[in-house]
């Protein structure tokens, strides 16, 4: 996965970038299965590797597929990223170890979900139950976000009357 990301950063052909992004999503989905997040992995595989790739390719078809050589030296962004990374590493030193049952994440609300979900909702898949029932408002808002994004894309890409003289006028003004 790390290798894919490095090649992703270096590669300048956008087609390669898009396909690698798909590969990367699929690897991420595999990692998520290993981490027991089957629902998430399924979504990631279908959304990240499927739909995103198709959309990126569609956009690529409309644009140029070759990235120009960067003019500036990448040292400043590299330094900023490295600094951010160092800060984050410093931050993790205080976090609980991997798979620690006493970590706060496992002790707070989750036992209630896990113990009562079958009695209260009759749905064995806890993820579905929490998604649709306990956190129904979240999901409603989230569906609305997807809806709004759809409307936004329609508003942006709806075929509009093209002024035929627009490009020429611009040239004439120069």
């Amino acid at each position: 996965m790390a290798l894919t990301v490095i090649v992703l950063t270096r590669s300048r052909n956008l087609f390669t970038v898009v396909v690698l992004a798909g590969v990367y999503s699929f690897l991420m989905a595999t990692a998520l299965v290993a981490l027991d997040a089957v629902d998430v992995a399924m979504t990631e595989a279908s959304v990240g590797a499927g739909i995103s790739t198709v959309l990126l390719l569609g956009a690529l078809y409309l644009c140029k597929s070759e990235e120009t050589k960067p003019v500036r030296k990448p040292w400043l962004p590299l330094a900023v990223s490295a600094a951010a990374g160092a800060l984050l590493v410093f931050g993790t030193l205080g976090l609980p170890a991997f798979s620690d049952p006493a970590a706060p994440i496992h002790t707070h609300v989750v036992p209630r979900y896990l113990n009562d979900v079958l009695r209260e909702t009759g749905v064995p898949n806890v993820v579905t139950a929490v998604l649709a029932s306990y956190r129904g408002y979240d999901t409603l808002g989230e569906t609305t976000v997807v809806f709004t994004a759809g409307i936004g894309v329609i508003a942006l890409l709806r075929r509009r009357r093209k002024q035929p003289g627009a490009a020429n006028k611009q040239d004439a003004a120069k």
């Binding site: 027991d36 994440i105 956190r135 999901t139």
Partner: peptide, 11 residues
């Protein structure tokens, strides 16, 4: 495993 992060990340 903890289901709560799964729900958040799903959305």
């Amino acid at each position: 495993s903890n289901p709560l992060p799964h729900v958040l990340i799903l959305t």
